[in-house]
Amino acid sequence: MIEAKGLTKFFGDYPAIEDVSFRAEPGEVVGFLGPNGAGKTTTMRILTGYTPPTSGTASIAGHDIQTQSLEARRAIGYLPETVPLYLDMTVRQYLSYMGALRGLSKQRIRSRIDDMFGLCRLEEYTDSLIGKLSKGYRQRVGIAQALLHEPPVLILDEPTIGIDPRQVVETRQIIRGLGGEHTVFLSSHILGEVSQVCDRVMIIHEGRIAAMDKAENLSESLGGTTRIILEVRGGTQNEITRILAGVPGVQSVEADESSGELSFIVECEPTQDLRAELARRIIERGWGLVDMHTAGLSLEEVFLRLTASQEEEDSASAEPEPA
């Protein structure tokens, strides 16, 4: 459905992306994960025909994005990162304009708009001016616009950025439900999001594809630890470290004084929740537990771990196979 081969884009001398190649099969939800500035938006803008690549080719539903641009664009629903909307239009006016731009008939526009109001839960705001909607609702209008013409391919650029957590959950549910019927290509800089929503994840770093794998394999290759951060008053650093490390299931403990308070980063197996046990041990000793929270890996760390495991795999597969 989406096929990219060697996409490269230079802005002046600066390569925003280099040699990006991948495929997304029909019905698949593919996540595009990378920190800010990695080149996600640039890649998506090339696929949607907004900007031409410096070199490389891509096709959408079998249509080359450069030589058959209109056909390719017809097959795409696109939610740009900026969620562009006409603020002086009502939701209904906006959607019917977008439908007309995609060449839908009047009746089809009407029935599809009603479908979209239901799917994106916009029923209460059908005739509100878009300029008066909250960010989360604008995001839904953006998604509705992308889905309106039932495109086989959906390209969503950071669809959950800047909206409140409850709406993030709803938006993810909507996207998850789109797989199967649509090929979805979605970008994000949140690891948890792509691993929840996507079948397959592609990681981009500094304009290059760093890893590409099934979502579940990805969490495995990340070593599968969760980390708990504790802030403790009383006791020496060594003592506390020793006590925490003695809890079964803890893999490593690291002290961190960078924030002024003494805190400990505890890595543990994700299969069990050690928070209660850790707290008990601290309090038993008469120390004060000031703060405790779990934290995910930063994208930087994810990237490091992934490339490390990738190299291991590469060297493993480089061994000569028995003939």
Binding site: R45, T48, G49, Y50, L70, E71, R73, R74, I76, Y78, P80, T82, V83, P84, L85, Y86, L87, M98, L101, R102, G103, Q145
Partner: peptide
């Protein structure tokens, strides 16, 4: 300014 140019230029029209 609004960024809607991106929508127009990715719509299937010339």
């Amino acid at each position: 300014k609004l960024g809607t140019m991106e929508l127009l230029l990715t719509a299937p029209i010339r």
